[in-house]
């Protein structure tokens, strides 16, 4: 049982980082900076609960704000580069953040022990959950409430003008501008929203593991972040969550019985999936068909 609870916790956290990349990638920006925002969220929230003694909820919100503010600042220079250049620039940003925390010490004495981030040793004892008597199930519920709120907001966004504008920009920047869409505003807003969501994810992650280290936030995490929306398809936020379930649940946990061979299959299955469905699992056409099936969206002209 505990095994499944733990798995669902991981899935929730990965859903958040996947969703943070989803918002950004809708505008056509392949950002590998999400792990950096996630790291910022993790360290900020951890420091607020451990060093400043805050409750987790305000710490979580603050982490989202700080990560969002950094993402906002990253959004402007990111406008100037595209494609491969953006991939490299955001990778470098993510790595710079990681390396910053690799070299970041800020320890204070609390009740006789020194706590806080300590460079390469990481940041230990982020014990808000155990100190407040949260059980595994409580933590799970906490995680999924946050995921639920983010999902609800994104679902709403997907159905509103905001979601369509992000997609229009992602598909053809020039046409979008010619139709009166302010590219700067849209791309920076998407990057900021992605930063906030990643910040939430990081804040939860720090408290879920209680011990964070710089290498938790490397390129592998950044790659997973963009893998979820790409594999899941960009037509709905549910695609991203489905992809997280597929990768974390099915491929990583479900295939555990394969032992070593699992990891081999993992890469091969991603290659296969992209060859079979280059637009992702839930592409626009599929989503449209599903909506029709359930009687929404395709309700004709008086909808």
């Amino acid at each position: 049982m505990d095994f499944y609870l733990a798995l669902l916790q991981v899935i929730g956290i990965h859903a958040l980082i996947g969703l943070s990349a989803y918002v950004v990638i809708l505008t056509g920006q392949v950002s590998l900076a999400q792990a950096g925002f996630f790291a910022i969220g993790a360290y900020v929230a951890g420091m607020l609960t451990v060093l400043a003694g805050w409750h987790l909820i305000p710490a979580l919100l603050a982490a989202g704000l700080v990560a969002g503010a950094v993402a906002f600042l990253v959004g402007f220079p990111a406008l100037r580069v595209k494609g491969l250049m953006l991939v490299v620039a955001t990778t470098a940003f993510g790595e710079a953040v990681r390396l910053f925390f690799f070299n970041f010490d800020y320890q204070v004495a609390k009740g006789g022990v020194r706590v806080g981030p300590l460079g390469g040793e990481g940041f230990k004892q982020i014990r808000f959950f155990p100190e407040n008597g949260y059980t595994t199930l409580d933590v799970l519920v906490f995680i999924w409430v946050v995921v639920g709120v983010v999902m609800a907001l994104l679902w709403w966004m997907d159905r509103s003008r905001a979601g369509a504008v992000l997609r229009a920009v992602g598909e053809d920047e020039l046409a979008a501008q010619a139709m009166g869409i302010d590219l700067t505003a849209v791309k920076v807003a998407a990057m900021t929203a992605g930063g906030v969501i990643a910040g939430f994810g990081g804040a939860i992650y720090a408290h879920y593991t209680t011990h964070i280290e710089h290498f938790n936030f490397g390129i592998v995490l950044a790659t997973f972040a963009i893998a979820y929306p790409i594999l899941g398809g960009l037509s709905t936020a549910f695609g991203t969550v489905v992809a997280v379930l597929f990768i974390q649940g099915l491929l990583i946990e479900g295939l555990r019985f394969l032992g070593d061979w699992r990891n081999l299959l993992f890469g091969a299955l991603i290659v296969l999936a992209m060859n079979l469905r280059p637009h992702g699992l839930l592409d626009a056409a599929t989503t449209l068909r599903l909506r029709r099936l359930f009687g929404r969206g395709g309700a004709g002209r008086d909808a």
Partner: peptide, 25 residues
């Protein structure tokens, strides 16, 4: 297809993981 750059990008990531894992294995 050339019109699906994200698909290509992701499958090269898959390939990266695959080659890496074969080596580890």
């Amino acid at each position: 297809p050339a019109s699906h750059p994200l698909g290509t990008l992701m499958s090269t990531v898959g390939m990266l993981l695959l080659i890496d894992e074969i080596v580890v294995h």
